[in-house]
Design a protein around this nucleic acid. Sequence first.
DNA 1: AAATAGAAATAAAAGGTTTTCGGAAACGTA
DNA 2: TACGTTTCCGAAAACCTTTTATTTCTATTT
Lengths: 351, 351
Amino acid sequence: MTGRRSRSVTISDVASLAGVSIATVSKALNGKDNVRPDTRRRVLEAAEQLSFRPNALARNLLTGQSRTVGLLTSDSVGRFGIPVLLGAEDAFGAGEMAVVLCDARGDAIREQHHLRMLLSRRVDGLIVVGGSTDPRPSISRELPIPVVYAYGPSDDPGDVSFTPDDVGGAVLAVRHLLATGRRRIAHVTGPTHYKAAADRAEGARRALEEAGLEQAGETLFGAWSQRWGRQAAEMLLLTQPGLDAVFCGSDQIAAGFMEIARERGLRLPSDVAVIGYDNWEVLSAETRPLLTSVDPNLERLGHTAAQHLFAAIDGQAAPGVHSMPCRLVIRESTAPPAPPAPPERQSGTFP
Amino acid sequence: MTGRRSRSVTISDVASLAGVSIATVSKALNGKDNVRPDTRRRVLEAAEQLSFRPNALARNLLTGQSRTVGLLTSDSVGRFGIPVLLGAEDAFGAGEMAVVLCDARGDAIREQHHLRMLLSRRVDGLIVVGGSTDPRPSISRELPIPVVYAYGPSDDPGDVSFTPDDVGGAVLAVRHLLATGRRRIAHVTGPTHYKAAADRAEGARRALEEAGLEQAGETLFGAWSQRWGRQAAEMLLLTQPGLDAVFCGSDQIAAGFMEIARERGLRLPSDVAVIGYDNWEVLSAETRPLLTSVDPNLERLGHTAAQHLFAAIDGQAAPGVHSMPCRLVIRESTAPPAPPAPPERQSGTFP
DNA sequence: AAATAGAAATAAAAGGTTTTCGGAAACGTA
DNA sequence: TACGTTTCCGAAAACCTTTTATTTCTATTT
């Protein structure tokens, strides 16, 4: 037996209890038109007493708007998807919008499936969250609703995309290193084929160029992992004797680098300054010393993406790829190399 | 101007194109009743040609089911919320269910607000995801729809809750340490007031008791952080000379412990074995040595919670708090202390 | 007192689908 | 032919709300 729900209370129940017509109830509840104050009070009391909730399905059917947006994450909702999602949810939260979440697990078929479902539910708009900053195929063609892309932009410049300005973020990082007196700066980052890796390397190059300096060694492309950070550290310490700073393409790489640097007896940040990327608190707030990192402001990105989706739903589109600025969060790992460096820890107190 | 959408194609458009009534179209499309094969073909062709998608709003209004479940996370969707969410989304994904996500940010007012919204949308059920394993106030009272609680159980035993069996997980961990020959085992974990911390400590106690052993020192309660792991390590190495294993209440604590242990020159796992908790891959797969850890199977937990919600929607409730078993993921950090321990790394190759 | 303007309340339509029930056609049997 | 059976299709109701057009009521003015 399919659990037959007890018919829920409708607007006509309220109407008959209050002794008025359903039209009057509707107007009284929605604060519309002209309805006498005491009538309104009577209606409100009746609605309260029956704990009446207007059936959103009926309203939506009538108005054609579902007051719902779909959030489509192509790659599994990960480190980057979450903050964007939170920002979007936050932007909508105040109103009456609902967010339905669909995770395609990187499967194009499943994405298509979810898309049909969302369309059939007549969602008012769509946010597509990429798993990386690499451009992804557009799905906006032939779609009757507005779409904004967050984190990973669409490959169609006619779409609306919001993506972090990784070049700018890297420039911020390297300029900061230069400002604190570092001169021999290396760069370790993720796999070559990631746009994020290429962009950050490009930003580092620009900042060094504008200071008239050479990068310490070629950019080391590898993985986003701590393990690669450790490997890269061993290579750098061997091949770059005068090294005084490293800009890492992720916090994980930075954490790995610092681990090895400490083991080798280098003092951080006196001997070598380190900057990470992503400002992933679980890492940047746990390393020794605490890690200076570029924060891509993902939550804000999600927030503005959602706001623009709102605007687009009302017909105000702003096509193009919008680069959102990053900010630098300065912690201990890039303090200037004070000449009389105090001992970093009292080593030797334990046997 | 409020972007007036071009009226979308309805079932009657299909009907007139196929030259039949709308009832026939409905039946043909839903594979219902008896409709002649070639009529069905004609209808399908017409629907395809117009790329007709049935308006779910209308269907839902009629059937009273919205084919939607709400996912209410009290505390911000965090480390633990995500896998549960993925599991749930996965369980529904195959069908036509949609998941609307609501994050109350730990604010009871906002939770109430979201709840009204979900009720007004006539969701078929609700999954409440807690931010910790501590019981939370029930919201099922007076609710016309089924609710299941995931991760953090409800404080009402009449509700349906799924929560990881932390006592059992801790037993697994300590038994494994005992099986690999460890005898002096310490336990470091999170804040006292967390049920998770208390449960894991209790599990450790039981496993030691059944082996007739004493725990090495009192359980050290602190924080879930890496930093606390480091502090605890310094204390333990000072006060527990014969220590040969540590069971940590989180992977972060374990990572911190291992960091200090390495610095002090201890060989891992030969001298001291380490076990973490949560099996958080970002950590457990990056430590040196790789970290053995208790995996609370959160994705599976979310999956079964969703399945049970399905069952509850169909009237098959299974009230009570269901403890879901954890599993132990064995990696390098608990290898038995082989008597002729090979040197762990070639130290000294670098200047 | 009658006329009228304005306010307040109601009746009815609309929105798109599913489902029930009745009708029609086709076919076989007496 | 008359009748029963099967097969297929269509008319119409139902779901619940908002909105438009219309009616009823109240108060003001002539």
